[in-house]
Simulated assay, not measured.
Amino acid sequence: MRALPLAALGTAGAAAATVAAAHVWARHVEIHRYTVREQELRILPPGARTIRVLHISDIHLVPDQSRKLDFLRHLATYRPHLVIDTGDNIASAAAVPVLAEAIEPLLRRPGAFVMGSNDMFAPVRKNPLRYFLPDARPAGLTERTDGDLPTQELARRLGEFGWKDLTNTRATIELGGLEVRLAGVDDPHLERDRFPDPAPVEPSAPEHGNVLRLGVAHAPYRRVLDAFVADGAELVLAGHTHGGQLRLPGYGALVTNCDIPREQARGLSIWKGVPLTVSAGMGASPYSNYRLFTPPEATLLTLRARRPD
């Protein structure tokens, strides 16, 4: 067998060292680099006061994640006027009371939530190459109804101070003269989304001037985004993608785990004329607890009044 040239050996060794360094960084450093992504939108009615919306998602909490819990507690210092939680909060049944304690200051503020698949089904070990398939979901997942996590207990904890459960329904929250009308769906990744019926219209009541319409889902599938746009949403919030979880400079997200374009897997973009914010989330499955070029995050949206024409 002919030996490889020294130059080839050197190149292969450098490549192996780069991969090893990336693994160490993703698994032991970046996964703990919690950050707050701050963005601003002018979508409120003219004259409305500025509001801060905290968007949290994909926490995937297990009870011993002390740095993640510290970050969750820290988020209350931003004093948001509204909190939106787009699901995948837990990775074990034992995490429910721990999560509720950590975010109690946020739960006492106006808020709303939807659930993700990992609020229903405990994580399992998967081949990461599965996410490069056209449909990464395990066979039969969308037909299952027997979730093995305490989803109802989680919903009770999230709602005990007044957060609205937006599972295939609508809700309204009053924020100091601004009426926030929310529409939400159950997890599209499990095909449980059933778009809520239109809100009833009272012919005798004039249209409220200070209104903000939000669409909320866990997974940003195109069919759901289109439904929110058709429903008149002025901002859509989602999670699920982890920002790709692994990103490459100059390329972006490798996968999205849904049918949204890769370039819209994280941050603020526009979907058919409507602002869309997709949170990269705060965590990952315990069996794939790493991130590369997409650190764990929460999003603080500052919403201001539109400028007069």
Rank of each mutant, 00 (worst) to 15 (best):
V124Q: 14
P196R: 06
A8S: 11
A199H: 11
P220I: 02
L182M: 10
H23S: 15
T299S: 11
S285G: 03
Q65A: 14
A122K: 09
V180T: 02
A305W: 00
H23K: 14
R37F: 15
A102K: 05
S285I: 08
G159T: 03
A8R: 11
G232T: 00
L301Q: 02
Y78K: 10
R130H: 11
V224D: 13
G147W: 02
C258F: 07
Y287G: 05
V62Q: 14
Y78F: 12
E40L: 04
S66C: 09
F293W: 14
L44D: 01
A298E: 05
R37H: 14
F161T: 10
L149K: 08
M1W: 12
R144Y: 03
R266G: 12
R291V: 09
I56N: 08
N89V: 11
L41E: 00
V278I: 12
V216G: 01
A112V: 03
K272H: 15
P249W: 04
D197T: 14
I84A: 09
T256R: 03
R67Y: 10
L158N: 04
A12C: 08
T35V: 13
P196G: 07
R2C: 10
G162K: 06
P138G: 02
R42S: 09
I103T: 05
M115T: 13
V124F: 13
D58L: 00
T169R: 15
W25H: 15
L246Y: 13
F132D: 05
I59A: 01
Y251E: 10
E174T: 12
A7P: 08
Q39C: 11
A100N: 01
N89A: 13
A155T: 09
C258G: 10
T169V: 10
H189P: 05
Q245W: 01
S117Y: 14
I31E: 05
L303P: 07
D135M: 01
H23D: 13
P134F: 00
S288W: 10
R247H: 02
G177I: 00
V83S: 12
A122N: 02
P138N: 00
R42A: 15
G111Y: 02
R266F: 13
E297H: 01
K68C: 11
E160C: 11
A227F: 09
L190F: 04
E160T: 12
